[in-house]
Simulated assay, not measured.
Amino acid sequence: MRVVTKFGGTSLGSGERIDRAADSIAEVAEAGHEIAVVASAMGDTTDELLDAIEFEATDRDEAEIVSMGERTSVRLLKAALTARGIDSVFVEPGHPDWPVVTNELGEVLPEETRRRAQALSRKLGDVVPIITGFLAEDPEGNMTTLGRGGSDTTAIMLGQYMDADQVVIVTDVEGVMTGDPNVVEGAQNVGEITVDELRNLSFRGAEVVAPSALSYKDEDLTVRVIHYQHRDILSGGTTIEGKFEHMVDMREEPLACLTVAGRSIRTSPGILHKLSGALYEADINVDAVASGMDSITFYVGVDVADTAENVLHDKILKTNTLSSVTVTEDIAVIRVLGTEFPDQPGVVQDIVGPLAGAHINLVDVITSATSVAAFVPWADREKALEIVQNAF
């Protein structure tokens, strides 16, 4: 088995933890598996180095300064493995085997990085490379970085390019949890989660795996997240399944838009629960939900629009904060899924602008961390789909 494992800053935050990491790496190597290691800076070293820069440093100088955290980690791990009789080598920018190449903006050059990563992979089994995470170099050999979460990106990207069977992210949480264990009682480990689910959680604050890293995962690459106290790298934690799809998709059947208005919706707890619960009890699937200043809109299939209208109307009669429900039928929805939306300013404009230029009315736009849904009149769906496809 070929494994790429990444040790986060917390998992290397002390001598004891470095010893634990070295033990787990040695066990995998001694069992006959091929393993490459990606190391983050110890603890909060990167933040401390950044805080020390109280002057106008060039990007190149800043990269050289913050690189010292990762450079220290790989040396410590290499020494710990040598003490255990494991043949290892630390690999950092400037090393002949260095794999990660970017342009001057820190954008990965995939062809060159893949070529170098595959060359490095051919040495696995004979030696354990310990690679600095987060860091990269441009084609001229100048230091660059991959940005926040760059060590995760290094690990999953190398796992992909080195044809690894598994990428294991070793961090300070026991995989993905049902809730923040520091806030909620009884939080449990989620044994499996999809890339789509995890990316949405990550973009909304769940610090498990950097969202940008997951764009390098495909169906064949197993990615797991384990706690640094979990000594066995090859078991436990949370398995991340699937791959993130880049696509433009249009629902084949038309939708109806049901808008419930109420003067105190924003200040009345439980309104959304009452309305969506009533639709659930009527076995009506809701495709999407949007909220306005004093309204809530549900999108459902046109075949159940009449039933849904009656269900919502019944709730209006029983709730004094709600005023009326109105229905608009024959609406199409076009969804754009992408991996980097939160980091790409103007994504919504790239959809809205061309549609407006074609004089297509936009009924609604609903966004999430990884998708944008545009609702347009059903009669305009084919033209709108072509416009959005051309934009992406």
Rank of each mutant, 00 (worst) to 15 (best):
E30D: 11
E30S: 09
E30N: 08
E30W: 02
A31F: 07
A31G: 11
A31P: 05
A31H: 07
A31W: 03
G32H: 01
G32K: 00
H33W: 07
I35D: 03
I35H: 03
A36H: 05
A36S: 05
A36C: 05
V37Q: 00
V37M: 02
V37T: 00
V38M: 00
V38F: 00
A39F: 03
A39T: 00
A39M: 04
A39W: 03
S40L: 01
S40R: 01
A41P: 01
A41C: 05
A41G: 02
A41R: 03
A41Y: 00
M42I: 13
M42Q: 04
M42P: 02
M42F: 06
G43E: 06
G43H: 04
G43V: 12
G43Q: 07
D44V: 14
D44R: 13
D44T: 13
T45M: 12
T45S: 06
T45L: 10
T45W: 04
T45R: 03
T45A: 10
T46R: 00
T46I: 01
T46C: 01
T46M: 02
T46F: 02
D47T: 14
D47K: 14
D47F: 02
D47G: 12
E48C: 09
E48K: 15
E48T: 14
E48P: 03
E48W: 12
E48A: 15
E48S: 14
L49M: 04
L49V: 04
L49Y: 06
L49E: 05
L50N: 13
L50C: 06
D51L: 13
D51K: 06
A52E: 09
A52P: 05
A52Y: 13
I53P: 10
I53F: 09
I53G: 08
I53V: 15
E54M: 11
E54D: 15
E54L: 12
E54P: 00
E54N: 12
E54Y: 08
F55I: 08
F55Y: 15
F55D: 11
F55V: 11
E56C: 06
E56K: 07
E56Q: 09
E56W: 09
E56I: 00
A57C: 04
A57F: 06
A57Y: 07
A57W: 06
T58M: 06
T58Q: 05
T58H: 08
D59R: 15
D59A: 15
D59M: 14
D59C: 10
D59W: 14
D59G: 12
R60H: 15
R60S: 11
R60Y: 10
R60I: 15
R60P: 13
R60N: 11
D61Q: 12
D61I: 07
D61F: 10
E62A: 15
A63I: 08
A63D: 14
A63N: 11
A63E: 04
A63F: 09
A63K: 03
E64N: 09
E64R: 08
E64S: 14
E64A: 15
I65V: 05
S67G: 06
S67A: 13
S67F: 01
S67D: 07
S67P: 01
S67V: 01
S67W: 03
S67R: 01
G69T: 00
G69N: 04
E70Y: 03
E70N: 04
R71G: 04
R71Y: 12
T72N: 08
